[in-house]
Nucleic acid binder design. Structure first.
Lengths: 278, 278
DNA sequence: ACCTGAACACCGTTCAAGT
DNA sequence: ACCTGAACACCGTTCAAGT
């Protein structure tokens, strides 16, 4: 919406930290992670390398800032405070009420809120393939940096609303965040290498190849992998991602049964219906 | 044990792919991830760069091989097939029976086997700080490469033994692996930067600083983080790691109650005892 | 078949010098 | 205060040439 101020006066705008970050994201989206270099940046921004370093310190600081910006936009679609509201990036079909209210202060059950945060991240990784790698790097290199903190907070609030006893807040939120990180990190373009989110055909071809390769594995070494080769070919990333979330949610609600807030029982496992427990 | 053949004849040994991988791991352990360069390798091995490339293709292939070697050793302490048995790397206190039988074909309940695999990885990351980052990179760059496959297989077998219905094997194992990856990735040296596994004092200092910083955060933006600052300062990585595993295991056993194998009920959450469900 | 090592095409970062 | 851009110290990788 309201697309204006594009290529035209881009040139002689003032150089700011925000503009550098913004350009970095564009570069990453368009050409992949290897394309983000200081020289590429100076090219797009029509400056010298010294100008970049006047504003940003160093390369990994820039990467962190770019990652944080995209994550912030994914978790709350409205302008966050600094800078402008990212390119109307709306995720395909994250949840029902997606407009005024961001994922952070959503309206559904705590479980729904957790799913909304998770899907926000999932969709962001789909839209920005480089994000998966950067999320992983931020978590390892800077375990409690801004990116981690932001995600933790977004997950923590609904965990609290769930009625989990205070002593378990940290552990419970950690488990969810760790699953989330692992899942979004591995769930990636099943395709070539960089850029573009990979077409449906590419994805299918990739899964086909992998699945076939698995069936060729030594039955002595990899009996399990062989056994699931077929399931893996047919699986849907998004569904599986949500199934995992529900698995963890089930674990949480089961462990804390009794102390949980009423009105929102278990997570109602998707696809399947009531089973056992009379 | 049996320390011999050290520095002495290291020189004029034949150059093999295995020896290069081995040297890469040494370099990574001793000086951190940034220290692994082709030039450093040629220095230690007393060759030229061309010799390296004759055996290994390129740098990221080497990184993958080094990661896979360490992961293989962590999941099964005995010599795996190729190469020698890594430096008697035995993890501190992974499980009870740690000697002849590796984590892969362990003897306990399926739950115990899953914990053994998880702890094997956890301890490996502690012993080799660079491993966290490499695991993350392998998972994102090469979601179904050898490293992922190996871990998946190790987790999948006990999942199967647990009695989870076949249709859920892939999803269930995925959830566990994703949690595992996220947790081992973030649980890292709470210290300076590279090399050495970080002393207890460093760890405490790090947690102190982080915890204090959290308490200074804006209560409007980060209410949850502020609320758990104290818990975070006092938490034990290993315990929390296991608590997360048990959370996921509880989710699994709850969802599949009824179809599970007898003799091994729920995961008996640690620290806490029976609660609710008459 | 295996290895040498100079050379190439890149990096990130610094810093005197300009305005 | 902000920016320029040449220069520096590094990379990974290649390849003619040797044995």
């Amino acid at each position: 919406m309201a697309p204006r101020t594009r290529q035209a006066e881009r040139r002689r705008q003032v150089l700011t930290r925000e503009r550098i970050i913004e350009t970095a994201v564009e570069l990453l989206d368009a050409e992949g992670e290897d394309a983000l270099t200081v020289r590429a940046l100076t090219g797009r921004l029509a400056t010298g390398s010294g100008a970049i370093y006047w504003h940003i310190g160093n390369m990994s600081e820039l990467l962190e800032a770019a990652t944080d910006a995209v994550v912030a936009a994914a978790l709350d679609p409205r302008p966050a405070g600094a800078g402008r509201a990212r390119d109307t990036d709306r995720a395909p079909e994250t949840g029902r009420a997606r407009g005024a209210v961001g994922a952070l202060e959503a309206a559904g059950t705590p479980q729904d809120d957790i799913r909304a945060v998770a899907l926000g991240l999932f969709d962001a990784v789909t839209a920005h393939p480089w994000l998966a790698g950067q999320l992983a790097i931020q978590f390892t290199r800077n375990p409690w940096g801004p990116v981690t903190l932001r995600i933790f907070e977004s997950i923590g609030r609904p965990v609290r609303a769930l009625g989990v006893p205070q002593t378990d807040w940290f552990t419970t939120a950690s488990a969810l965040v760790h699953y989330l990180l692992g899942a979004t990190t591995q769930t990636r373009r099943h395709a070539g290498d960089d850029t573009a989110p990979a077409s449906e055909a590419e994805r299918a071809a990739f899964l086909d190849t992998a699945s076939s390769a698995w069936q060729e594995l030594d039955p002595g070494d990899y009996p399990f992998i062989r056994a699931i080769a077929e399931q893996m070919r047919e699986h849907d990333d998004r569904e599986q991602f949500l199934a995992g979330i529900d698995l963890v949610l089930t674990g949480i609600t089961t462990l804390h049964a009794g102390s949980l807030s009423r009105g929102a029982e278990g997570p109602t496992p998707r696809g399947r219906r009531g089973r056992g427990s009379p």
